[in-house]
Design a protein around this nucleic acid. Structure first.
Lengths: 355, 355
DNA sequence: TTTTAAAATGTGTACGCACACACTTAATTT
DNA sequence: AAATTAAGTGTGTGCGTACACATTTTAAAA
């Protein structure tokens, strides 16, 4: 290692016997360079390990980047509100580097409006896009548009591998279901029933949720010590039948545990368990929403798996900025750890700024 | 919010009717400034929200910072080896910003040598120090020396509040013990015995370890559903009696679970459980060491609490750099989340780069 | 009042890179 | 051979800050 001074473009120029301008042209292959000069510069480049000073680079190319964030409307939705917080934090963090983040929100019940919004985003000509593509079919044409304009885009929350994004930030849903199964199974010595509940106002992302159930079931296939029956329900809390369906489920005396695949649904299930005094039924759900924290602390919810929506958004934007500003490539797939939250460790998560 | 250009020192100078030099002197209170000029500048400062461009600042003051890292010898010790990895990563990350990190290691059995090492560090005149102060008494005079030289120092792993460091990075040990208790207690419906094992080649940090036990016991005092007896042992694996003590413990048929307070001890306890076929005894320990992972995957270890030594070191150095280079102040107390690792979520932790 | 020192303030350069522009040299065209 | 165009190359400036140094103003001493 060369102790001391870092190598600068100036140094390369001197070593190669050309001017800094020529080195610059070679490094960024812009403009025209003679074969001779190219050879001389590349020869030097091969021998030394040039690491451009990113600090100086960003200062030199005094560019302002505009990033568009597409997320479901966070109003009245605690999950997407957390996502929104991540965007706001990213905004604050990168503002001084000339990065602006414009948030575009869409109604999760209005697929058609999504299309229009994608167009609107495109018209604003952003340098990069972060998007939570909860509509599978409607997202694909949007990605095509982005690609045609060669605007880099990062996905988070929901992965769509066909989308060929710059990167995806989220979790392994199958494995997430397995963690749920593991936690529900722990210390259960008698046979009984486990319920998987997909409680959602919308059934769009049921594919997304069913992946969790798949992992959940796979775990029990691989670890069948006792006989467990697994039942599953896709429930819409706005349907009139919803309440009765849940009450009927709770009436089953063999019910040992409930795994809820959605964050908002977790609190709903918890409220029923509380109301009907079924505190012994193990409840596992998702995310550190205000409501969920309440039930976790009172012991109704036993475990929460943290999807960290805030950090997903934050990191999505960071990936984009690193790509645009620093030309740094981030991993194409950033899978967050499946954080297990309990009554005793929840405060350590809430207290730590980063997590 | 002022959309568009950020406010520069130049702008402040113009608004205040003085030169940039004067503004600079006011901002960093260096040199002499007339009361009149001071008033004019502060008046402007009060009205606008000046955020210095950190990029330009670091470029302008082209300083090279030298950081010293003091840790126990990582050779043959997987826990401190992880710490060392964090230091190496920090080194790589900050190298291009002119930061060098020199690592000083000490023998955990040789307290006297520690003193000499502290002097050696001081002689190298570093700009900042990160230190894992596992020797309580021997560390205090070292801190005094650092303070006299006004070299900022950051503690990690072990907190010594009296040390008045720039910051501490680690975990809440009491709460950590509580998490252990919670996990060991989960789904235990019969009364029995829980054992707390402090397995360490050295008993220096027993105070440190006993804090975990304190939290562990407190949990059961607050949640006494069943009658549990809690026994505890401070064991040195190098002592000839060690093996028999453990075997005797495992002979107790009422033993429901074991909580090991050290990372290396976790694997040791696991090896005994495996050897004597006591797979049903719940085992909870610390950290993602290679050995521990093996036993976690085979089901001997049920839970690991991740202390994240690598990240502790990494963040310690980052705090220091932010303080020195960017004049950014970090929280005085950065408590990491108490991450619960299971068979099913362990890969999601290992895979993710940050954690 | 002039001289000298001290206090206060302004100016200029460097940091490393990006990029615009001016310049030189070579290749064509008239 | 001169004029035009293109290819290749070098120089210079800006980004926002830090800091050294030059300059002006003010106060104290001669």
């Amino acid at each position: 290692m060369d102790i001391g001074k870092n190598i600068r473009i100036k140094d390369i120029a001197k070593l190669a016997g050309v001017s800094v301008g020529t080195v610059d042209r070679v490094l960024h292959n812009r403009g025209r360079v003679s074969d001779e000069a190219l050879k001389k510069v590349t020869a030097v480049m091969d021998q030394i390990d040039y690491k451009p000073n990113l600090i100086a680079r960003t200062l030199g190319s005094n560019k302002n980047y505009k990033i568009a964030a597409l997320i479901p409307d966070p109003t009245g939705d605690p999950y997407w509100a957390q996502t929104n917080l991540g965007i706001i934090q990213a905004q604050a963090e990168w503002a001084q580097y000339g990065v602006t983040v414009d948030t575009y929100t869409f109604d999760i019940f209005d697929k058609d409006a999504f299309r229009g919004l994608a167009m609107e985003v495109l018209e604003s000509a952003p340098d990069g896009i972060v998007i939570a593509p909860i509509f599978y079919h409607e997202s694909l044409p949007a990605f095509e548009l982005f690609q045609n304009q060669s605007i880099p885009y990062v996905l988070f929350n929901t992965n769509i591998p066909e989308a060929q994004p710059l990167g995806f930030i989220g979790q392994n849903l199958n494995q997430s279901g397995r963690v749920g199964a593991e936690l529900i199974n722990l210390g259960q010595h008698e046979s009984g029933t486990f319920a998987v509940l997909h409680i959602d106002e919308d059934v769009h992302d049921s594919i997304h949720l069913l992946e969790k159930e798949k992992g959940f079931r796979e775990y029990f296939q691989e670890h069948r010590k006792h006989k467990f029956e697994i039942v599953d329900f896709i429930l819409n809390p706005n349907e009139p039948t919803f309440k009765n369906q849940l009450i009927e489920l709770l009436g089953d005396d063999t019910l040992k545990g409930i795994f809820v695949s959605t964050s908002k649904g977790t609190a709903v299930a918890a409220s029923f368990l509380e109301k009907y005094g079924k505190k012994d039924i193990r409840l596992i759900g998702y995310d550190l929403l205000e409501e969920n924290l309440k039930y976790l602390r009172s012991g109704i919810i036993d475990f929460l798996i943290n999807q960290n929506p805030k950090r997903q958004a934050l990191l999505g934007i960071s990936h984009l900025v690193n790509h645009l500003m620093f030309k740094k490539s981030a991993p194409a797939l950033e899978l967050f750890p499946l954080e297990v939250i309990t009554q005793q460790n929840v405060d350590s998560y809430l207290g730590s700024g980063i997590h």
